[in-house]
């Protein structure tokens, strides 16, 4: 009997310093190569600056720094993933975009408890695909707009 596989959704997988992360495809607007940014005064430290995306002034988040990852080797051609963030758009700068995966409910796992922490607050869950560990990022938590407002 044919049954519909238990798919929870499609995710865009990207890499930062050999770690794999992903975002729901539905929130991704486009992917483009990174360009020079214009720094924004008094912006949160993980916001690299602004770029002109066809007339839209887009803030770019340095995901590496936001997640507190150590840079072992700087990326050769970093890319920007343009994602929808509430009513507006933001850009996430990452090392490499890999592929799109379909993930079933069974492959989703809860966040493991780790001693250093730090990354947990930005992660919604983890995916285990044949031994690969892929973190599902939470866009609403990763973008530091709310902290700005508090400041």
């Amino acid at each position: 009997m044919l049954t519909q596989p238990d798919v929870t959704g499609e995710f865009l997988v990207f890499r930062i310093q050999d770690q794999e992360f992903c975002l729901e495809v539905s929130s991704v607007r486009e992917i483009r190569s990174a360009t020079k940014t214009v720094p924004l005064p008094n912006a949160p430290k993980d916001v690299k600056g602004l770029i002109n995306l066809r007339g839209v002034v887009l803030p770019i988040l340095d995901v590496t720094s936001r997640l507190g990852l150590t840079i072992v080797s700087p990326p050769v051609n970093p890319v920007i993933i343009v994602v929808e963030f509430g009513p507006s758009l933001v850009g996430l700068e990452v090392d490499v975009v890999d592929d799109i995966i379909s993930v079933s409910e069974a492959q989703m796992q809860e966040i493991p408890i780790v001693p250093t922490g730090g990354i947990q607050e930005f992660v919604r869950g983890i995916i285990n695909i044949s031994g690969r560990l892929i973190c599902v990022l939470a866009i609403d938590r990763i973008f530091p707009a709310r902290e700005m407002a508090v400041e």
Binding site: P41, A43, L50, V57, L89, F143, A145
Partner: peptide
């Protein structure tokens, strides 16, 4: 142009 992502730097910059 408003700066996307709700970035309103109150001190010194109003928009772009």
């Amino acid at each position: 142009k408003e700066i996307q992502g709700g970035m309103r730097a109150d001190h010194g910059v109003s928009a772009a």
